[in-house]
Amino acid sequence: MARIIVVTSGKGGVGKTTTSASISTGLAKRGHKTVVIDFDVGLRNLDLIMNCERRVVYDFVNVIQGEATLNQALIRDKRVDTLYILPASQTREKEALTKEGVEKVINELSERFDYIVCDSPAGIEHGALMALYYADEAVVVTNPEVSSVRDSDRILGILQSKSRRAEMGQDPVKEHLLLTRYNPDRVNRGEMLSVADVEEILAIPLLGVIPESQIVLNASNQGLPVILEEDSDAGQAYEDAVARLLGEEREHRFMSSQKKGFFSRMFKGG
């Protein structure tokens, strides 16, 4: 049986797809058989972030509707050989994802993989509900900013009431907070909500903090999951998050700004 992890947020543009790409790549790099599913029907982008956009032939909806087999639709990652991508359909309606159809595909994947990572679309509509419905765990991606935090709280409420685990009265979906686009300098200046602030408001355990970094855009430009930028702070922060997801203890890093000396502050800028 695979562990099903949904990457969700409510708000758009906070880093769900970036996170899905990195977490699935990180899990696979550690030898776990992993598949990452794009649930954003009509607006697929995971294929671009994972650099397999030109290899998409069949998609998730084709499999649900019996127009292709799972094997035909799954794309094997070129960098990590235990990683597969199931792309979203670019042309269908979101409603093509039925609860029964999604369940059938997830059950089939469950027999072959250790981890199923579900990349949720933004919002709280059908696509997002389908992405989280079968989840065992949820990575709630949040930016230190008011609208993102509020939407994250909303999605937590939905996880607690509308997931399969909630409906069946099973143990609740295990929730993890992943704070992205974190800028410790701005936090120090009192301009940005701190990790502690967001933890206090959302009251769920912290999986990791990804610092705001140029590397993230550079990586997505090239279709490279950030976690493979192993020398970068953001890449290492994702690596730590994956380790914690697997139950390892890792101290949090990149949460405070590098102390700058007097001269660098004077001449290089704050």
Binding site: V149, R150, G190, E191, L193, S194, I201
Partner: peptide, 14 residues
């Protein structure tokens, strides 16, 4: 230093 304002508003609405 607007972060404290953000936190307060969030606590109320949430």
């Amino acid at each position: 230093r607007t972060a404290s304002v953000a936190k307060e508003r969030l606590q109320i609405i949430v």
